[in-house]
Design a protein around this nucleic acid. Structure first.
Lengths: 204, 204
DNA sequence: GGTGCATGTGAACACCATCCACATTGGTGT
DNA sequence: ACACCAATGTGGATGGTGTTCACATGCACC
C-alpha cells in the first residue's frame, strides 16, 4: 500500500499480472480485462506489461492456459469419486465424470470458462495437437480407457472425441451464455446429465 | 457519395446501421463493430446511433436477430433436399438437416455465427421462451415431428432439444473457434456428420 | 568496479462509447 | 396556411482504452 518505498523493479511482474488478471476476469470473462487496470492493480505503469506480453491477447492466452489446468482439476475431482468393480462400467463412469466435471467448472466459474480456450487458436497450423490441450487430453485418455475396457468398440473410437467435446462444450455454453443462463440448479444438473448420457450412448 | 446535398435527416438510419453493421461483422464477428465506424459508413455523426439503439450492445442484439433468421434459412435449405417415403426415416432426415444446416452456417459465416445469439441473454427471466428463438424453434419442430412419426419415443422427447442443441452448437464452436479451426473441409464435414449422427442415436 | 541488458516509466497517439446542449426538420392540429 | 412539437441528427466534451516510443533504473556478470 505504501507507495514510497516500492522498488523500481517488481520482482515477478509476470506472475503478478496473471494473478490480477485471473481475479479481474473471474466473474465477467475476457471483456473485464484491461491492460491498464491490471497494471494499475499490480502497482506498475501500463507499458510495463509489454515487457512480459506481446499484447493484451497474449495475456489472455496465458490466463487461458492457467485456467485450463484448473478445468482439469475439476474433472479429476469428479472422476475420483468411489468406483465400481467392472472395468467397462468403470471406464464409462470416468468418461461421464470428465464431461460432468467440465460442465461443473463452467457453471461454477462462468467468467473463467469463457477464457479457457482463448489461446487455442494461436496454435498455428491446421490440426494443433489436441492432446496438448490438457482438458482435451483428459477426454482422449478416458476414451482410450473405454476402448481398453471393451466399453467402446475400437471401430467407433476415431472421431469420438469430437462428438464428446461438442456435446459437453455446447451444453456448458447453453448453461453459461445460452438460454439456460440463470436456470434453477436442479434443472441445470438434469440437463447436464441427460446431455452427457445421450452422447455416451451415441458414440458407442 | 456527394456530401453536399445530403439531407439533414437520413430517412431510415436504423436500417442503414443494421446493414453496415452486418457488413462490418461478417468476417470478424462482434469485435469488428464500432459505433463510430458504423455511423461513419452511414454518413452520419456517431451520436446519431443513439436515437435508434440504447448502446452498442443493443445494435449487436438487433444484428443477432437478423442473423438468426439467416441461420433458419440455411437450415431450411438443408431440410428441403429430396425426401424419402417412410415418415419415421423422413423425420429423422429432417432432424439431421436442421443440425447440419446450423453447422453449415457457422462454417460459411463464422463472424455472423459468433453474433447470432448475442441478444439471447437479454431475454430476462429464468426460462426465456426457447421457441421464440427461431433456430431453436426449428429444432423443436423437427423433434416433435420425430415423435409424431414414431421415430422418437414420446418418453424420450423431454430434454432432447438440449442434447441436440448442445452437440450441434458445440460442434460449430469446435470448427469455428476451437481446435478444428482451419481444418480441411473434408475433415470438417466428416466430423459434423459424425457428431450429428451420434447425438441422434443418443437421444432415442 | 564498470557495463550491458532486462525491466519499469511517462508521455504521446489514435481510437473508442457515451452524454450533453443545440440544430434541423417533417408532420400535426388549428 | 401557419405555428409548433416531437423525432432525429450535430459537434464537442469526457473519460476510458491499447500500443509505442525514448528514456530511466538497477541487477548480474565480467
Amino acid at each position: 500500500m505504501s507507495e514510497g518505498n516500492r522498488p523500481y523493479h517488481h520482482g515477478d511482474l509476470r506472475a503478478a499480472l496473471v494473478a490480477e488478471g485471473l481475479e479481474l476476469t473471474r466473474s465477467d470473462g475476457p471483456g473485464a480485462l484491461s491492460l491498464r487496470e491490471v497494471t494499475r492493480r499490480a502497482g506498475v505503469s501500463p507499458a510495463a506489461a509489454y515487457r512480459h506480453f506481446r499484447d493484451r491477447s497474449a495475456l489472455l492466452g496465458a490466463l487461458g492456459l492457467e485456467i485450463q489446468s484448473r478445468v482439469v482439476e475439476r474433472m479429476r475431482a469428479r472422476t475420483a469419486e468411489p468406483g465400481v468393480a467392472d472395468p467397462a462400467e468403470e471406464s464409462l463412469r470416468r468418461l461421464r465424470g470428465v464431461g460432468l466435471g467440465y460442465i461443473d467448472f463452467a457453471c461454477e466459474e462462468p467468467g473463467w470458462f469463457e477464457m479457457a480456450f482463448f489461446g487455442i487458436a494461436d496454435v498455428e497450423g491446421i490440426g494443433p495437437d489436441l492432446a496438448r490441450v490438457p482438458p482435451f487430453a483428459e477426454l482422449l485418455a478416458a476414451l482410450d480407457e473405454c476402448v481398453a475396457s471393451g466399453a467402446l468398440p475400437a471401430l467407433r473410437r476415431p472421431g469420438a472425441e469430437f462428438s464428446c467435446w461438442s456435446a459437453v462444450h455446447g451444453c456448458a455454453e447453453l448453461i453459461v451464455h445460452g438460454p439456460l443462463r440463470g436456470a434453477a440448479p436442479g434443472l441445470v444438473r438434469e440437463v447436464a446429465e441427460r446431455v452427457v448420457d445421450d452422447i455416451i450412448v451415441g458414440i458407442r
